[in-house]
């Protein structure tokens, strides 16, 4: 088995207690961190801070401070730089960020030794934070940006989306999603649970109908179309043997796989043999995909190590 990422969870430490062992682990980590902080400047991020100012002159924003401007805004931008850059200062927030990221990375990686309190903590943080993040995101992209903007443009502009063009107007079509949303939320009511099924039915039905076309076109017709090639391949010097064989293999492979996915007949006799060939084709495909994906995973792992050793521990 080619799974490197997760090993057998040691059932002895099921993470239920926070015993002496973990206290020692924390102790070692703290000592290590202090050492790393001083010896390696681990996780210290230096930034160069600049102030950017814009002024509004005659309905246009120009860079820099202009006297008599109708409005003037300024903010600071920080760029991470090497510690020896002139004017660079240690950024507390970024340093904390790197440390947090490193600690959380280690916590997650501690799963290699089985379930443990660190993993649990990291898991809870990731799940909680991301759920909250998605909640906020959906609110702004879904409810505000799509629904409110089209239903109550003026009010929305006033409190949420100042950049909304004046031309935006009430769009009656958006009442439909509003009603559907309302029906969906009906679930919370103890009565009439069936009401929530209608929007779901709508979503699933509409999706199915919509996807039918696109799937049939892209996964069915286009696939067939792109597989149709002459089995007699000619090149500059006439008939080319190997490319022709290749084309034949592709055609036969596709046909065999197609037979494997026949459900309404038993895979016996000739059908069984063909399906078997299809299986081999699929296996070869899977093998290739497997290798490709493993490579991708290794890259991800490298990225994480890169973060730990370079950005955090300053070793590379």
């Amino acid at each position: 088995m080619a799974s490197a990422s997760v090993t057998n969870a040691n059932s002895s430490n099921d993470g239920s207690g926070f015993g002496l062992g973990w206290a020692i682990v924390i102790g070692i980590f703290v000592v290590f961190s202090i050492g790393a902080w001083f010896a390696l400047d681990a996780g210290k991020v230096y930034t160069l801070t600049e102030t950017v100012t814009y002024s509004q002159v005659d309905d246009a924003w120009v860079s820099g401070a202009v006297d008599g401007a109708a409005q003037q805004v300024s903010w600071e931008t920080s760029t991470a730089v090497n510690a020896d850059t002139p004017g660079a200062a240690l950024s507390a927030s970024r340093t904390i960020g790197v440390w947090l990221a490193a600690i959380l990375t280690l916590c997650i990686m501690s799963f290699l030794a089985g379930d443990n309190p660190f993993y649990k903590a990291a898991e809870a943080i990731v799940v909680g934070a991301s759920a909250a993040y998605w909640m906020v995101l959906s609110f702004w992209t879904g409810i505000v940006d799509k629904l409110l903007v089209n239903l109550i443009p003026d009010i929305t502009r006033a409190w949420a989306v100042p950049g909304l063009p004046e031309s935006a107007s009430f769009d009656v079509i958006y009442l439909i999603p509003l009603v559907l949303s309302g029906m969906l939320i009906w679930r919370l009511s103890p009565k009439g649970g069936w009401i929530a099924r209608w929007p779901l039915a709508f979503v699933i039905g509409a999706t199915a109908g919509f996807r039918l076309l696109s799937h049939l076109e892209s996964d069915f017709l286009l696939q067939i179309k792109s597989t149709i090639t002459p089995l007699y391949v000619t090149g500059a010097d006439g008939f080319q043997f190997w490319p022709s064989v290749g084309a034949l293999v592709i055609l036969l492979g596709v046909l065999c796989c197609l037979v494997y996915f026949f459900f309404s007949m038993e895979h016996k006799g000739a059908v069984g043999k063909t399906a078997r060939m299809g299986i081999y084709v699929l296996m070869v495909t899977f093998g290739a995909a497997f290798g490709l994906t493993v490579m991708g995973r290794i890259t991800l792992l490298t990225e994480r190590f890169d973060f730990l050793f370079r950005e955090w521990l300053n070793l590379l």
């Binding site: 088995m1 299986i279 699929l282 296996m283 899977f286 093998g287 497997f290």
Partner: peptide, 9 residues
């Protein structure tokens, strides 16, 4: 079931 890739099908 303990399987390897070879057992796929």
């Amino acid at each position: 079931q303990q399987r390897t890739v070879g057992d796929t099908f």
